[in-house]
């Protein structure tokens, strides 16, 4: 059997295409669990902010701690399928820590902020990261980032005192729905 350079190039192109699709499917599977976890926690955080505003800070510290430790647990034990890039999980963990760290610095620089502004600040920062991730990981992240950001801004302008409830439904609910949808795509 003889292979000419054109056939060889076509075969290699097919190999690269399947490798890319496999990477994407596994990334989507891992991300879907993270989306659902953070969606549930964020929804709880905003409900806590709405019903017990005096204790909102404590609520968010608990949400962040549960989210980071839950994310770590999901990366370690949550899936049976991983790519050869074993450092990917580590990098995602560091990225989450960097996000919280830089968010706190920005908050400190921009302080004072109203509760309403702070409520919009964190999810907008997270969605900005989703948009950036989408440029590498697939359009789903891009669409989720842009869509949820639009909902954050719409609620900020029009929902008045109901803003935390709006965020619980749109950011928390949005992440849960996205996670479930992502699971179908993976």
């Amino acid at each position: 059997m003889t292979i000419d350079p054109k056939d060889a190039a076509a075969s290699l192109s097919e190999v690269e295409s399947v490798e890319r699709r496999t990477h994407q499917a596994i990334t989507y599977e891992h991300s879907s669990r993270q989306f659902v976890l953070w969606g549930v926690l964020v929804a709880c955080g905003y409900l806590f902010t709405f019903f017990l505003p005096a204790h909102a800070n404590i609520g968010w510290i608990v949400v962040t701690a549960l989210g980071l430790s839950g994310s770590f647990a999901l990366r370690v034990w949550g899936s049976r399928t991983h790519t050869r890039d074993s450092r990917l999980g580590q990098r995602i963990g560091y990225a989450q820590l960097a996000l919280v760290g830089f968010g706190l610095i920005l908050l400190w620089l921009l302080w004072p902020m109203s509760t309403r502004q702070e409520s919009a600040f964190w999810p907008t920062l997270v969605m900005f990261c989703y948009v950036l991730a989408g440029l590498w990981l697939g359009t789903f992240f891009l669409a989720t980032g842009l869509g949820v950001t639009a909902l954050i801004v719409i609620g900020y302008v029009w929902t008045g005192d109901w803003y935390p409830l709006w965020l619980a439904a749109m950011v928390g609910g949005g992440l849960i729905v996205s996670g479930l949808w992502l699971r179908r795509l993976s």
Partner: peptide
């Protein structure tokens, strides 16, 4: 070739359904 390309992405201890 496609099967091997997909499996080659996996880490050593994991499998695809």
């Amino acid at each position: 070739l496609k099967i091997m390309a997909a499996l080659n992405v996996l880490s050593p201890e994991t499998a695809l359904e």
